[in-house]
Amino acid sequence: MKSIFGLLLVVSLCTIQASAQTKVTFNVNLKPMLEDSSFVPGKHVLQVKGDFFPFTATTRFEMKDLTPKDSVYSVTLTFPRRFTNKMLTYNYVIRSISGSEMNEFLPRQLDLKGREVELPPFYFDSFPN
């Protein structure tokens, strides 16, 4: 009986902790930049950076085009539950292999709510009205 109670307690705690995390899929549509060659795969990388963990001052996460025909670059990150109901400030950055960077003009923000979020694939440096 004690082992069943202990097992249920562990499963409950794991479920509560996992469900309170915020899993975010960042998406960017680079179709116009691929067409005009302002973004060239192999010569440039698209990254997302933000203002708290898992981001650090030097950590940016590279985004990949998992379905090349749609030109949408994505990365999924999990934010610990201590950031639930916090406002994440983030931005996309294009880096060239030579080290130069192109940053978006305005910062983006997302309210972390402890659930899974898939952001719409807006164009680099464009924002919804």
Rank of each mutant, 00 (worst) to 15 (best):
T25H: 04
P54A: 04
Y90G: 14
T59P: 06
F26E: 02
S38G: 15
E62Y: 11
A20R: 08
P121T: 05
G114A: 09
P54T: 07
L13M: 08
S38K: 15
T89L: 05
S98G: 09
K69H: 13
G99A: 11
V24Y: 00
P41S: 13
V72T: 06
L110K: 02
P121G: 02
P121M: 11
V93K: 00
F79K: 01
F53M: 14
Q109D: 12
P41K: 14
D36Q: 13
L88A: 12
Y90W: 14
P107A: 03
L46K: 01
T67F: 11
M87V: 15
F55Q: 02
M63P: 01
E101Q: 10
M63F: 10
L9V: 14
T58L: 11
T25A: 11
V40G: 06
E62W: 13
I4N: 03
Y73F: 15
D36W: 14
A18M: 13
M102W: 06
T22M: 03
P121N: 12
F5R: 05
L88R: 02
I94R: 00
Q47E: 15
T59E: 14
M1S: 06
Q17M: 14
S71I: 03
Y92D: 01
V28D: 10
L110R: 08
F124S: 07
I4S: 05
K31V: 04
S98L: 12
T22G: 01
V72S: 03
V40M: 09
F79I: 10
V10Y: 05
R60L: 15
L112G: 02
Q17G: 04
F5N: 09
A20C: 12
T25E: 12
N85P: 01
T22W: 02
K43E: 10
I4F: 08
M1K: 05
A20V: 07
V10W: 07
G99C: 13
S100Y: 07
V72R: 00
G6D: 12
E101W: 04
V40P: 10
I16Q: 09
S12D: 11
E104Y: 02
E104S: 03
N29E: 06
F124I: 04
F79M: 03
G42T: 06
P128C: 01
K69I: 14
F52R: 00
P41N: 12
M1V: 03
K49M: 12
F105P: 01
V72N: 11
R108Q: 06
V93L: 09
L66E: 15
Y123I: 03
D125P: 01
M87W: 05
L88G: 04
V117Y: 05
R82L: 15
K2G: 05
Y73I: 05
N85C: 07
